[in-house]
Design a protein around this nucleic acid. Structure first.
Lengths: 172, 172
DNA sequence: GACGGCTGGTTCGAATTCGAACAATTCTAT
DNA sequence: ATAGAATTGTTCGAATTCGAACCAGCCGTC
């Protein structure tokens, strides 16, 4: 085809390159961590994340929906995983009197212990793969970047469309 | 550990914070893109990735396993997605005479068109959320970081554990 | 040229995720 | 007080992913 001017087609190679590499790296990172976590501690990365968030929370407990928001998944997925973790005895659910429809997920002693055992392993992996090899300046830069991205996402969530094509229904 | 210099500022706020933010940001990014892609172009992010890789390849074709490696998923997942894309008419499979067990996945005209339509949309989203807000220096920095991480992962893959934690002390 | 070992892809079952529909509860405004 | 809206979690079905088992074609050696 090669239809004349398509400057907006592949844009600057930079965007593509950086983005592609970014995806590649993040995917591989997740895979590594997931595997290690599975093999050595018998939990998923998501499950690990849930435990971490609980441990970091006041009273080692959190509401389902807060959990969902923190780990960025659908509520139903949280239900599923909390069931799993509950079966394993790592968390427990308790109704909270205040709001009868709400549920508090508590980290159990067993859960805390499991986390204590898994955390160093994962953190060292994260360090090894992710942080150790970058210097302070880069680290500071990364921190800034994360902030920027986060803000951007917030803003975009508030204002989903930006300038997207009209949400036209499929014309017949 | 003096509490004022870059180093401690970086190390002290612990790995956890940066890592957590990183996960949060990447997950949200993926979700945004996935949603946009689904809503506006009827394909998954993985499917989009496959199309992109094909379009970028010589002869707009790739072997299944190369594809799997590029997009970092299990081979079976590639089979699955290529089947879907094939049903949609966006790719086609062709045996290659050379190696009778190998399969070349070709981008069809329809696939190329679909990609042409989707790419600007996604790239603009990527820019908007990911790149626009960072300046050249930061972009360069990011690029360097990605390179470092990638190398790290390569090395780690070659040398998976090197010092496995306690393999499995599960008994009481 | 037959034999064991690789490699490339597929198939199968299990696990996980999502979104939509739902039930129960709280909140708001009249 | 009450109808309507919003929120909280769950359930359900569909889609997707993974890993292991598997088949088939390639490659080296004898």
């Amino acid at each position: 085809m090669s239809a004349g001017d398509f400057e907006s087609r592949w844009l600057a190679p930079d965007v593509n390159t950086v983005w592609t590499r970014f995806l590649h790296v993040t995917h591989r990172l997740e895979h590594q961590i997931d595997r290690r976590l599975q093999e050595q501690h018998g939990i998923t990365h998501t499950q690990y994340e849930i435990l971490v968030r609980l441990a970091d929370s006041d009273g080692r407990a959190m509401r389902m929906s807060d959990l969902a928001e923190r780990i960025v998944t659908a509520k139903s997925a949280v239900t599923y995983q909390v069931n799993r973790l509950s079966e394993m005895g790592l968390v427990s659910r308790k109704k909270c009197g205040r709001d009868n429809r709400g549920i508090w997920v508590h980290l159990t002693e067993a859960g805390a212990e499991r986390l204590e055992r898994a955390a160093p392993c994962i953190l060292s992996l994260v360090r090894e793969l992710f942080l150790d090899a970058i210097n302070c300046d880069q680290a500071a830069e990364l921190d800034k970047l994360l902030g920027t991205w986060s803000d951007n996402l917030d803003e975009h969530d508030r204002n989903p469309i930006g300038h997207a094509q009209h949400p036209e229904p499929e014309a017949a």
